[in-house]
Design a protein around this nucleic acid. Structure first.
Length: 199
DNA sequence: CGTTGGATTGGCT
DNA sequence: GCCAATCCAACGC
């Protein structure tokens, strides 16, 4: 099994980091030692000067982590119910990140099921709100360092072969909808049911 | 200070 | 497939 992704991995364009995160394993170690792990199968890139990005109108208290160093976790709240997890990418000051949208649960499924209030493995992490909920992630984890922190990190996985990598438009965005910056493992059953904005 | 709508989900038709 | 839930950040006055 490969090791933790280094700072240099995140310090690149989000359109590179997004597809490269597919197959990586998101890991969280809880205070009691319980380990949660899931294989990432869906991401979306939010670039500098991207009208769909929270960072588009400049830095605010909500999005300030996006403008910090790469390799940190940006967590935000939306739709009155849901927390979303992103990995900050690029260089400090740019305001760019990759949204973690779906993953295949590998370890700690009982805890994830309890967090989600659902049992089926396919329902645990198959959407950005679900993924954060399964991992017990809220605003309390905003800004956490994925490279040096002990709480959460991402392990490198085997690269996804080109034949198994699909690009689509992003889900739920209105501005910048035509940009094909959603990345999925083709045909993977753990991908979200969200519909791309382009169709 | 009031209004608007969102990087979604789950339950119901 | 459709739509309400739910609340806060952003923006306008």
């Amino acid at each position: 099994m490969a090791g933790r992704l280094p700072r240099s991995f995140y310090a690149r364009s989000a359109v590179r980091v997004g597809p490269d995160l597919l197959g990586g394993v998101l890991v969280r170690t809880l205070a009691d030692g319980t380990r949660l792990a899931a294989r990432i199968v869906e991401t979306e890139a939010y670039l500098p000067d991207d009208p769909a990005s929270h960072a588009f109108r400049g830095m605010t208290r909500r999005n300030e982590v996006m403008f910090g160093p790469p390799g940190r976790l940006y967590v935000y709240f939306t739709y009155g119910n849901h927390w979303m997890m992103n990995a900050v990418t690029g260089r400090a000051g740019q305001g760019t990140a990759v949204l973690l949208r779906a993953a295949e649960p590998l370890e700690g499924l009982e805890v994830m099921a309890a967090n989600r209030g659902r049992e089926a493995p396919r329902d645990l992490c198959s959407g950005p709100g679900k993924l954060a909920k399964a991992f017990g992630v809220t605003g309390a984890q905003n800004g956490l360092d994925l490279v040096r922190g002990s709480d959460m990190h991402i392990l490198a996985g085997p690269p996804i072969p080109r034949s198994r990598l699909s690009r689509t438009t992003r889900v739920g965005v209105t501005l910048g909808a035509e940009r094909p910056w959603r990345f999925i493992v083709t045909g993977d059953p753990f991908v979200s049911r969200g519909r791309p904005s382009g169709s």
